[in-house]
Amino acid sequence: MNAADLHTLTGAYVLHALAPDERAEFERHLLICPACAQEVRELAATVGKLGLAVAVTPPPALKHHVLRRISAERQEPPRVPGARRGGARRGRGLSRFVLAACLAAAVSFGGVAAWQHQEAREAREDARASQRQAAELASVLAAPDARVSGTKLPEGARGTVVVSQSRNKAAFLTSGLPKPPPGKVYQLWFDDGGKMRPAGLMDPAVTDNALLMDGPVDSAAGMGLTLEPAGGSAEPTTDPLALMRFST
């Protein structure tokens, strides 16, 4: 791609609409082209401000429509010292206006690719966090020093806690646990000598759980399970449904 073509990619770059190889080449270009770097900063700031002002569900075809319009609209290269002025300057002003209009339209409907990129990044981060938690759960269950305790739960359900002191973590497993009432959630607790410490919330839609308890075991000698308002509580607000001592 020649230098003249690179100058036209500021809008597509801000919209995260470049292919990976084009994006890498354009980012190298930004290091040596202050004019393009400034334009990218200005367009990105505009997109951010407009995005904060609206929150509307976009039509599914809007992103493709906007990107198609941008790709079809010719942008003049940025003005550099010694370059001719006049017609080229007027053309650049027009293309910037059209590009800004496209950006504003995209943002006003919540369909800017930058927003979708952020959503995708957050989804990837959530997936990586889930993978890390699953790996840590597996390491606790398979730990050589894992100690297992079990108890009965309401309506014939069963609960099992697995503790690994070497990993300073505990896992809690349930089978057949009834779903909590609307607006309620099951909450786990570490028992620190009679003082309950929050250890995570259970998924109210799942009856068979296997989850890593939040926080370290430390000096906890057992755990508890209570029914709490949705979102959980800082300390138990109901009598425990179960209390379990950790096996030693």
Rank of each mutant, 00 (worst) to 15 (best):
L243E: 13
H117N: 01
V148W: 09
T174R: 00
A72K: 04
R79V: 10
K184D: 12
A53F: 15
C102E: 13
F26T: 06
G91I: 15
M223E: 02
Q75N: 08
D218F: 06
L30H: 08
P236G: 01
A114G: 14
A44G: 14
H64R: 15
E76R: 01
Q165D: 10
H16C: 14
L31F: 11
F172G: 00
A45Y: 05
A55C: 05
A143D: 10
K184E: 05
L94W: 13
L43K: 13
D21A: 05
Q187V: 07
T46S: 12
D191M: 00
E39A: 08
R128H: 08
E25W: 02
V112C: 02
M244L: 14
M1Y: 05
S247I: 06
V217G: 00
Q165E: 06
G82S: 06
L212K: 05
G93I: 00
G231P: 06
E122F: 14
M202P: 13
A61L: 10
L153N: 01
K169S: 08
L201I: 15
R167W: 12
T207I: 02
E155W: 10
L18Q: 03
P59T: 10
L99A: 00
T57G: 00
G11P: 10
G176R: 03
E228K: 09
T226F: 04
P198S: 14
A234F: 12
D218M: 02
V162A: 06
G87M: 11
R128W: 11
H7P: 09
L52Q: 05
H16P: 06
L15D: 09
P20N: 02
L15W: 11
R92L: 03
W115R: 05
G87S: 13
T57P: 00
A88W: 02
I32T: 14
F97V: 14
A61M: 04
W115V: 02
S175Q: 15
A230T: 06
F190N: 09
A104D: 09
C36R: 15
H29K: 05
Y186T: 09
G93P: 10
R147H: 11
N2E: 11
V56C: 05
G93N: 05
F190Q: 04
A234H: 15
A146Q: 06
